[in-house]
Amino acid sequence: MSATASTAAVVEVTARDLQGPGVVFCPNPKMALWSNHPRVFIDLAHEGEGKCPYCGTVYRLKAGEKLGSGH
């Protein structure tokens, strides 16, 4: 199966994968260098899910993951 622009990837993340207060960045380290776009931070703290405005990748907290309220 080939990837197309209409097929958005879904990346499930754990609370440990988050940067700062409930955010992830895209492109993520596992993405191929040829597909890089400017780094954007995607907030997962409010909805538990967010979408990259450049490539359409959806980032979602894994089922059962909880965001810490502090350290």
Rank of each mutant, 00 (worst) to 15 (best):
Y59R: 04
C55L: 13
H71N: 10
K62C: 09
M1W: 04
M1R: 08
G50T: 07
G48Q: 07
A5S: 11
A63Y: 07
V40C: 04
G20K: 09
A3Y: 07
R39E: 14
G64N: 12
K66A: 08
A15D: 07
V24G: 14
H46W: 09
D17A: 08
P27G: 01
V13D: 12
V11C: 13
G50N: 10
K30R: 14
H71L: 10
R39V: 15
V10D: 10
G68W: 03
W34V: 02
N36E: 06
C26W: 05
L33V: 10
G20M: 09
E65L: 08
A5T: 11
K62L: 04
D43Q: 03
A15M: 00
T57W: 15
T4A: 08
W34P: 00
A8F: 06
V23L: 13
L18S: 11
K66S: 11
F41V: 12
N28V: 00
K66G: 01
V40A: 02
A32I: 09
N28H: 13
T14A: 15
G56P: 11
G20L: 09
V40L: 01
A63S: 11
Y59T: 00
R60G: 03
N36K: 12
S69Y: 01
A5N: 10
G68A: 10
L18V: 11
G22P: 04
Q19L: 13
K51Q: 13
N36I: 02
C26F: 06
L44W: 05
H71A: 12
P38E: 06
P38N: 05
Y54D: 13
L61P: 08
Y59F: 15
M31T: 15
V24M: 14
L33W: 11
L61D: 01
Y59S: 00
K62V: 00
L44E: 03
G48M: 06
L33G: 05
R60C: 12
V23P: 00
R16G: 03
G70S: 07
C55N: 14
T7A: 07
K66F: 04
C26T: 00
